[in-house]
């Protein structure tokens, strides 16, 4: 297990280095100058040079990249103050520390992702298993057709509709917003309820379809049939053997989904005006804000890699036949 984790961690570092280099050098291939953004209304060539120097983008790109990576591991000093490791720099746009901003936005994204996961796992897996257990019946057909319809919808379509209906028209739900969980748990729950359900709708449909198909596959396995032949009850076999066996592909996809969601659910965050990492990523691109963009990219990549490692580790617990090596 330890060897496995060490090897995966080293691999993750290599992947992150590649991502950081790609992001950094691709950024400078864009025909945009971040200094122009920060140079006032009547920007003169002299003022533009001053801004470039202040931003540290007057140096060759490889030198900038080297200094950036040194900062990540050893920290750096900026005019606005010291930046201890892991230093992801200061935003070009508002001079805030990137790391601090990411940490500030992460709870929103985690709250959104975790809440939605609870909903789509509960509803999606439940509906999928029920459809598998009642294969060929009306329940199966309704769930299968329903999941197909729902998975065809888009968040940017159902999100505003849901707000218009449940918030503005009926007044049943609160205006979507993020309130700190520790400050106001009830406000946190009420503010995220609608985003959770809208975000989870798409995932629920996918997990319903996936759970149904894997369960049907498992129910046709020899060991399941053997268990039934030995006289075990249908529910016992269903949950003890078939359900457990169907989890591996679901956990794999769940790990990838959660990694992506922790990196930011951009469309959902935009639709519901939630200040999460996804929104931050898009803003940093629009603002030509390299430090913020690098920070969010690295953070999101780390989240995805970490989730994948956890998934791999989880295999051993789900299926004793799997051995980590």
């Amino acid at each position: 297990m330890l060897r496995f984790l060490v090897r995966r961690s080293l691999g993750a570092v290599v992947i992150l280095l590649i991502i950081s280099a790609l992001t950094f050098f691709l950024f400078y291939s864009i025909p945009r100058d971040p200094a122009l953004l920060a140079c006032g209304k009547n920007c003169s060539p002299e003022a533009l040079e001053v801004v470039r120097r202040n931003m540290g983008i007057d140096k060759p790109v490889p030198v900038q990249y080297w200094e950036y990576m040194v900062g990540v591991f050893a920290g750096r000093d900026f005019a606005v103050g010291p930046c201890p490791a892991p230093c992801l720099g200061y935003s070009f746009v508002d001079n805030t520390p990137v790391w601090k901003t990411i940490l500030d936005r992460f709870p929103t994204t985690v709250s959104l992702a975790a809440g939605a996961a609870v909903v789509f796992l509960t509803v999606g897996l439940g509906a999928g298993m029920l459809a598998a257990a009642r294969r060929g019946t009306l329940v199966d057909k309704v769930f299968s057709a329903g999941s197909l319809v729902v998975s065809s919808l888009q968040i940017y379509f159902i999100g505003p509709l849901a707000i218009a209906l449940f918030v503005y028209q009926l007044g049943w739900l609160s205006q979507p917003e993020y309130v700190n969980l520790t400050e106001d748990p009830a406000g946190w729950f009420a503010g995220l309820l609608l985003p959770w359900f809208v975000l989870s709708m798409i995932f629920t449909a996918n997990y319903t379809r996936m759970a149904r198909s894997t369960m049907i596959e498992q129910l046709q396995e020899d060991h399941v049939r053997t268990a039934r032949a030995k006289g075990m009850s249908r529910p016992f076999v269903f949950f003890r053997y078939a359900w457990r066996g169907s989890l591996i592909p679901i956990v794999t996809i769940f790990g990838v989904d959660m990694g992506s969601l922790f990196g930011g659910a951009m469309i959902t965050e935009f639709t519901f005006t939630l200040p999460g990492l996804g929104r931050l990523a898009v803003q940093s691109v629009l603002n030509t804000d390299l430090p913020m963009l690098m920070g969010v990219m690295l953070f999101a990549a780390t989240a995805i890699i970490l989730c994948n490692v956890l998934v791999d580790a989880a295999y051993a617990f789900i299926d004793p036949r799997v051995r980590l090596s």
Partner: peptide, 23 residues
């Protein structure tokens, strides 16, 4: 418009997009 090109120009960009950025 603090999103776009040179600040004064960004104003015009954003305004053209229907949003006020710089006055």
């Amino acid at each position: 418009n603090r999103n776009l090109a040179r600040r004064g120009r960004a104003a015009a960009v954003a305004l053209a997009a229907g949003a006020l950025v710089l006055t």
